[in-house]
Amino acid sequence: MRVSVQSDDFDLAAELRGFGRATNTGATVTFTGLVRDDTGQLDHMEIEHYPGMCETAIAKIAEDACARWSLTDCLVIHRYGALKVGEQIMMVATAGRHRVEAFEAAEFLMDYLKSRAPFWKKEVSKDGKSTDWVRAKNSDEDALKRW
């Protein structure tokens, strides 16, 4: 299991080299989150984080996932700082004995990272005039109930 909170970009292929290579791994799942522009007006996102709490909170979520789905490996990378449209924000990778475990654990990680990892996103428009904090959705909190 590995958790990294970083400003630098990551190379998905490099991160996955050697990931989940235990002989009892039958499936790996990866998810990558990107900066999306719905309106054509977004310049970048500023991602603020709570140093220390981020690492602890994510490690706890990843440990829970590892235990619940008997994962053979688990990786979470989450970036902070100013990220342009199209840039990678974060990734999770899970490795399990079967695909169901790997898929479910990846969804669990994503649901919990969204509402329980201390990051905040601010959208900055191309003209620099509009800066809006992304609001958490009720559906994000509801998503946790299924677990």
Partner: peptide, 10 residues
């Protein structure tokens, strides 16, 4: 003590 809005990670 830390105060903040609901988190928006992921």
């Amino acid at each position: 003590v830390a105060f903040f809005p609901p988190m928006t990670g992921g």
